[in-house]
Design a protein around this nucleic acid. Structure first.
Lengths: 402, 402
DNA sequence: CCGACTTAGTTAGATCTGTGAATATAGTGC
DNA sequence: GCACTATATTCACAGATCTAACTAAGTCGG
């Protein structure tokens, strides 16, 4: 079978490791250390093939041997590991509120994590590209790594995307981003390959290393300023025909429900999203610390109140959770996943309240009972999107060539 | 890359053509006739490779040359076509109401279509397997084809499945089918490979030949006695982790809604499914022809009333459509498809009423406007599931070996 | 109507990937 | 130290698909 070029690739997927070389690299990366025997089992290749492929990876400096395993009565396995300093990738997550950077080494380890101010109201995309370029340079410099070893940058943001052409639609406050080809501009400005993805989709890729290896079909429910989801299949990311799969935030959960910024009514995001939670909390007169607080900071304040016994805050969040459970159920019913991970900043601060309510709805349906669908909380929810962006770049074809 | 064996295959998909041989066969099949040049474009293989692969297919009697195309200034293209009499497959769709058989030739053409009584209330699966075996034999005999050329049988039925282990859950009236490994029993009884699939999933495969070739991500919304959906990606069928993907009939569209047979409440199927439509029509005192009429026959009677101007019938169906539109929107938002096909017996009789209502909701959302999601009606809705069952078998590995 | 041009398809040889069988390596346990 | 076992490698070969050069069968213009 022929490997399609980037431009002619069939829609639907972000490719899973396709060459055996990439598959081996990725298997070692997600396992941490792995022997050649285990690689034969995972990849389905024969021992001689694994030997040859691994040798090339070692020659290219991408993989190293890392001691011996314990013997089980014969020669002990030689452990292989990714040479983490071989290459680096950068992940950037843009939201209204904040700009999150992660610097990830070739083994998938997180070397640095920065949070900077977001673009805010009516931002000029060109100016933000400039800022990202500068801050990316600073990040590389402060980390003290060789900038020629940086493979590329994964850029993620909320909202549906037009493939290769930027953001397709955005909340009013970020209207100027619509149609702006961020990743192309970043490529030009940085001289590095850049990849554009939806934040929720990337978050599904970001939970990759934290999820058990036997899970091949999993989804992420991502809540930041908006609500989205992503699906991961055998290591590849499902993107849909136009790169907008998983738009769970804009399915209608309430006929005749409140109007959403997207133009429709009764959207999950409008009924149960963080912005709505904040609005309800303000209306109820809850003290969110500072009147200036917006977005995740305000949502976090409400979550803290709820967790420390404020029954009004608790009721507001539990109401949100009851609706969100419908979205979670839509994900599990449509995608039939083994694991649903709750991730993103909003779950990072309020996940413990949401989790049992979502679990309950999913487990209470007959289909939930006949199969095992686990719902878990991602402990790195805050940075999941940026990490996912970096990992997607790390798994791209760019990252495999010597 | 290595082709996994049937048992070790990674979950998530019914495989798309994986060998170049299968890809070529399938490309010719869906195009009707195709030249070698076009095959190089579709498959991405080079001309010499296509030549060699096609020669082997011709030698094996699976493909034949079918005259010349028109010249465009050079040597005219030699047209290739599937030798339709080379092999046959059978598709069987079981529902409560009826048992639908199709006999499909190697080119995907439908040679025969039978409808027989369904298993009905409290049926004994063993007895039904026996009936299917007998009727399958009759079908082959009456069609006058060589029974040794029959490759296998695709069997589809409603409800979520446990892979390789039969039906996982079923409406009360078919409770005895739960856990019964129909396809294994059919294999034993018929001495032919059999494949078990969900009817909605198969319907997505069944629209395969009727959908344009440039559509690589499409879904089917299937309504028979229940409501389900299936997703097709680049020719492969997405099945989910447990083979239950697309269970749109049991997502909750109405918190606190009516109880569903599945144990949950507010399920799309309970709110808007044919059974509910029939119950409402009976409650409204509509004349459905015969009091005995159940299932699709009763639903068809209501559809006829609605189409001939009965405003009460029309209101009942339009109400169903308004809810179903939520399910359709969930499909398009979650899967991000190019085309959504409405199929199955219920849409075969009432599709023209449902279509505009579903179209309107999908097109009215911002995400619908920014991308092109077509909603169309399958004119072969009645037999889509059985045809899909046959085509899935036709595209399986069994159908490629000489 | 004939020769240049164009497009379709074939042949032959090279390359790349991965395989099977046999062999080398490095431990354990008696 | 020797038999045993599991791990890893070597080497010759098979299959798929590629590139380059060639043949086949039309159109078109003079």
């Amino acid at each position: 079978m022929q490997q399609g070029s980037d431009s002619s690739r069939a829609p639907g997927y972000e490719p899973a490791p396709t060459s055996s070389r990439a598959l081996i690299l990725d298997s070692i990366r997600s396992a941490g250390t792995l022997s050649r025997v285990e690689l034969t089992q995972i990849t389905g290749l024969t021992a001689p093939s694994v030997t040859a492929l691994v040798r090339r990876l070692i020659d290219d400096g991408l993989v190293g041997e890392a001691g011996r395993g314990t013997s089980t009565g014969g020669k002990p396995r030689t452990l292989l590991q990714i040479r983490s300093a071989a290459r680096y990738v950068i992940g950037v997550h843009l939201s209204y509120d904040s700009l999150t950077y992660v610097l990830v080494d070739y083994a998938g380890g997180i070397l640095a994590r920065w949070r900077r101010d977001g673009p805010g109201e009516d931002s000029d995309p060109e100016e933000v590209v400039e800022r990202i370029a500068t801050q990316t340079g600073e990040l590389i410099e402060r980390a003290g790594i060789d900038s020629t070893l940086v493979l590329g940058l994964g850029f993620v943001c909320p909202g549906p995307l037009i493939r290769n052409n930027g953001v397709a639609s955005a909340p009013p406050m970020m209207a100027r981003w619509v149609g702006f080809p961020v990743h192309r501009r970043l490529e030009e400005r940085l001289g590095l390959p850049a990849l554009l993805e939806n934040d929720a989709t990337a978050a599904a890729a970001g939970t990759r290393l934290t999820t058990r290896h036997d899970v091949s079909v999993m989804a992420a429910l991502f809540m930041s300023e908006g609500i989205g989801s992503g699906l991961r299949l055998n290591g590849s990311i499902y993107q849909g025909a136009h790169g907008n799969a998983g738009e769970v935030g804009h399915i209608c959960v309430q006929i005749g429900g409140p109007r959403c910024w997207c133009g429709s009514t009764g959207c999950l995001e409008a009924v149960a999203g963080p912005a709505t939670v904040i609005a309800k909390a303000r209306a109820a007169g809850l003290d969110l610390g500072s009147h200036r607080r917006t977005g995740i900071a305000a949502f976090a304040a409400i979550a803290r109140l709820a967790l420390t016994g404020d029954s009004r805050a608790e009721a507001i969040i539990k109401d949100s959770a009851a609706w969100l459970a419908l979205g979670a159920q839509a994900i599990t019913n449509m995608y039939d996943v083994q694991v649903l991970v709750l991730t993103g900043p909003a779950f990072a601060v309020a996940g413990t309240i949401y989790l049992p309510i979502l679990q309950e709805r999913i487990l209470s349906s007959a289909f939930g009972r006949s199969v095992t669908t686990e719902v878990i909380l991602d402990e790195r929810g805050h940075d999941a999107a940026a990490i996912g962006a970096a990992l997607m770049m790390l798994r791209s074809e760019h990252a495999v060539t010597a």
